[in-house]
């Protein structure tokens, strides 16, 4: 059961929670009854692992797969570009230099 007011569970089958407020690195959080410490600065809308997820496992949000874990993820860790990748098409950030890369 998720009782942490800063995190939203969108669907019971999801393995991630969504931040409903901005969370600072080092802030204590309760994830599924476990006490953890935020491992990154996260704006609202960012995702946190609801349980331990192994590399290549699907990340489930809205009860739908949104990509695969690119490495093992621990409960409570930030889930983003560094550990989740698309099963369809690579995402780009402002650091990309442009062109036909990715």
């Amino acid at each position: 059961m998720n009782k942490e007011p800063r995190l939203i569970l969108l669907h019971p089958n999801d393995n991630v929670l969504v931040c409903s407020r901005s969370i600072k690195k080092g802030e204590p959080l309760t994830v599924e009854g476990h006490s953890v410490v935020a491992d990154a600065d996260m704006e609202l809308g960012h995702k946190i692992a609801r349980r331990a997820i192994t590399a290549s496992e699907k990340i489930i949000k809205y009860n739908a797969p949104i990509g695969s874990a690119s490495k093992d993820i621990e409960l409570g860790q930030h889930v983003h570009m560094h550990n989740l990748q698309s099963d369809y098409i690579a995402s780009h950030t402002r650091d990309n230099k442009g062109g036909n890369g990715a």
Binding site: E43, L44, G45, H80, Y88, A90, S91, H92, R94, G101
Partner: peptide
């Protein structure tokens, strides 16, 4: 070489095109 995915999407917590 790019999806319909802008840098601001990632800053706002979205990670993948399908998400």
């Amino acid at each position: 070489g790019y999806g319909s995915f802008a840098p601001g999407n990632a800053e706002g917590g979205l990670t993948t095109q399908e998400e």
